[in-house]
Computed example of a mutant assay.
Amino acid sequence: MRDPKEWFEGRPRVMFVHAHPDDETITTGGTLAALAEAGLEPLLVTLTRGERGEVVAGPLEALVAAHGLAVARQNELRTALGMLGVERHAFLGVEPARAEGLSPTIYEDSGMSWGEDGRARAGADAGPDALTSVPAVEPLHDLLAAAYLAGAQAIVSYADDGGYGHPDHVLAHRLARAVAQALELPFWAIAGDGASDTGAADAVGATEALEVHDIGDWFDRKVAALRAHATQLTVDGDDIVHVGGQREPIGRAEGFRRLA
């Protein structure tokens, strides 16, 4: 297994762009933990607080009813990042992920619905403060400021379909890739475990650009961080059980495909 310092072509400052709390752990938790342990201080930017997610049935429902899902998910994210060893985090719209001269703002979860094909699609009731409702230039400038201030040397986010179609994920890809192009930085799209990569349609055939990280040494940290996101999922053995009942194995490898 390669040293984490060699991942992403040895670029020491990588910015990860994720849509909601828990996304960072599910798809990139082991990589984040490895980079943090190596002293490379990855930066995580979370675009929303996941206000419109469902809640796992049980005692946490009362907590969420009392304090709101946004508060609960922010606390879960803080705990998860502690498990991963990640210290550099910002919500988009708040310094250091806010364009200079603008007051702090909150980009809200856009929500989604499930299509007949089993993939997510945009919901019809996104509010005016939702990430996908505000003019895209505003979050774009915020993310550009975050990358510039952090001295980012590479950017990681989703493939062009957002992984499973969620509108916030799709916009995260577009924003992150636009920032990478503006700053002439390499961009890596998350590719699951690297075994299949249906999202990066624009990179078909570029198998040499696929980078797969064996995160076995950091698997336990990833599992601990997943358990922190208790309103959204449960850990059952080596599987994640999502709030909607969907199951997926916890990845012991994390794949990334370079698109630019």
Rank of each mutant, 00 (worst) to 15 (best):
A72R: 03
G85T: 07
A70T: 11
A90W: 08
A70Y: 01
A72S: 11
N75V: 07
R98L: 15
E87K: 15
E95T: 13
R88F: 03
G85L: 05
L102V: 13
A97E: 12
L92F: 03
V71H: 10
T79M: 04
P104E: 04
P104G: 02
D109R: 03
A99M: 10
L77M: 15
L69W: 02
R98S: 12
G93W: 01
Q74K: 14
A97T: 14
G101H: 09
R78P: 00
R78I: 12
L81Q: 08
L69M: 07
L84W: 01
P104R: 06
L92T: 04
M83D: 01
G68R: 10
V94C: 01
N75L: 15
R98H: 02
L92G: 04
L81E: 05
G101C: 10
R78S: 10
R88G: 06
Y107H: 11
A90E: 12
E76N: 07
R88E: 15
I106K: 03
A80Y: 02
G85N: 06
R78T: 15
G101N: 10
E100V: 13
A99F: 08
R73V: 12
L81H: 07
L102E: 13
V86W: 03
V86S: 12
G68F: 04
E87A: 15
V71Q: 11
G93Q: 04
M83W: 04
P104A: 07
A90H: 11
E100L: 12
G93D: 03
P96E: 09
G82I: 05
A70N: 01
